[in-house]
Amino acid sequence: MMDAVAGRQHHEVLARLARVTDPELDEPVTTLGFITDVAVEGGHVAIRFRLPTYWCAANFAFLMAEDMRREVAALDWVQRVDVTLDDHMYADTINGGIRRGATFHEAFGNDAAADLDELRLTFNRKSFQRRQELLLRALLEAGRAPEMLVRLTVAGLHAACDDEVLGGLAARYLDRRDIPGSFDGGSLAFVDVQGRPLSAADAMRPYLRSLRNVAVNVEFNGALCRGLLAARFNEAQPDDREPTLRDFMLQALSRQTGEGQGHAQDTAPR
């Protein structure tokens, strides 16, 4: 039986992990089904994860492992974090590198031409554009005028996003609002990825269309990854919707309380 403290700690770890996204898919590793096990023992946290194919890009895998470790280590009660990648062609190199706190370049030596900062930035830009597009389209659909949106401030955005859906989209977008440059409540809510104000309101549609190409690219891998993950681990895909973070957390919690420390793939429906 898991006591209340352990249950809370487990919950906190999952919440930290939910902040880690697959760089290309811009979705939390938790909702993507990458996390297979989270074990907490005192101040020691052990996380296992997997990816849709044996070939998934090593730099992305490394980046996610690094992010998981950093996020979970930020909890004040955590003393040690072990992150283990399973079933991957570079599992040993990545796991060893993460364990010793090496950079990607140090872990891979000559095979790695560069470190991951630029990659992280590239994908953060795409993430900014994708989140902005979703929010802008939702605001237009909710009847907000383009003329108003191009002049809206960050503080005004909070006020304009008065329901749960818009509020959620706005929070996700503002999480990346610093990509084009630092901002405060008085800054324009919507700028392009270079930080320039959006031009006249009649240019909104073509702008949105250009942003949608970013999403179209990302979605290509997103749809493939989900299908590949399900095929690889012989798991049923949900018919009508993607699993949400809540589904995952409920599943993980019931697993922890009910069955100790089994891997998700042992308990997943076949």
């Binding site: 590949l228 095929a231 690889r232």
Partner: peptide, 11 residues
């Protein structure tokens, strides 16, 4: 080939 089979299954 497993990865190709994954594509086949996925789509």
């Amino acid at each position: 080939i497993d990865c190709f089979y994954g594509y086949h299954n996925a789509l």
